[in-house]
Design a protein around this nucleic acid. Sequence first.
DNA 1: TTGCTTCTGATAATCATTATCATTTATGCG
DNA 2: CGCATAAATGATAATGATTATCAGAAGCAA
Lengths: 144, 144
Amino acid sequence: MKSERKIFADYLVKKNLRETPQRGMILDAFLKIEEHTTAEQLYDIVKKRDNTIGQATVYRVLKLICDAGLAREVDFGDGVMRYEHCYNHPHHDHLVCRSCGKTVEVVDLVIEELQKRVAESFGFELTDHEMYLYGICGNCRHKK
Amino acid sequence: MKSERKIFADYLVKKNLRETPQRGMILDAFLKIEEHTTAEQLYDIVKKRDNTIGQATVYRVLKLICDAGLAREVDFGDGVMRYEHCYNHPHHDHLVCRSCGKTVEVVDLVIEELQKRVAESFGFELTDHEMYLYGICGNCRHKK
DNA sequence: TTGCTTCTGATAATCATTATCATTTATGCG
DNA sequence: CGCATAAATGATAATGATTATCAGAAGCAA
């Protein structure tokens, strides 16, 4: 099983892109974070190690990381794009608490299968999907 | 069965808001459109009838129409908010063609039920959800 | 009418993201 | 090595949808 760093390096080679300290640093920082992250948050973290880095670079590298198959964009609809790990992290959807913002990753194979069938029944070939379940989590309900 | 205009008028009264020519005109224009509409598109239409109208007003009234329960926001993730009719138009999700942008409204009661169960299994009380199925429609597939 | 509140339109502000561009850095080749 | 070429970076400006602001207009109450 190849490491994320190796995959990224291979991706750069394949695309005739160069391995640079900034790219390495941003990838490392991203890999250390397990939660969903915004470009801004990642920028703040990386800046602590090297305050000459620009946020444009963070946006750029984040895009590369996605292309390399190591990250996935997640859009909770609040105007900020979030990124989550994608390697060895199979597809899933999100359950989001409307009150505290807590998120849980969920998968339901039956739902996935039904989605495919629904699409086919309209002549579509399903390529991907997004599903966000919004609700109130147990904690927040008990506080009231 | 109350008309959309009546519902909107009642909503305005309930909220101590006024019925104005602009609000009437924007609502009428919105009701005439059956497809998903952006604020920009609606603004263009309304401007033809009254070119003194401001786009800020269109945004404002669109928000009122949503609050009144006559419209719903739809986010296809391309950075522009769309609005669709909501009254006498039961809940549904969207199937979107990645190639031509065509959209189809879909509902699957089994999926809906499973979503509720998934949420409950994590202690969440489901309030709402978003589901977008992306694929390639029959037309686009045949063109290749 | 007079005062008061709400609405409106024009415009500026916002905010995440993207584009631009001059400078720096890396790489290949003679 | 040294030069030529290409890619990467950081600072900053631009973008584009949406929101806030604010002065003037319009509706309502007494």
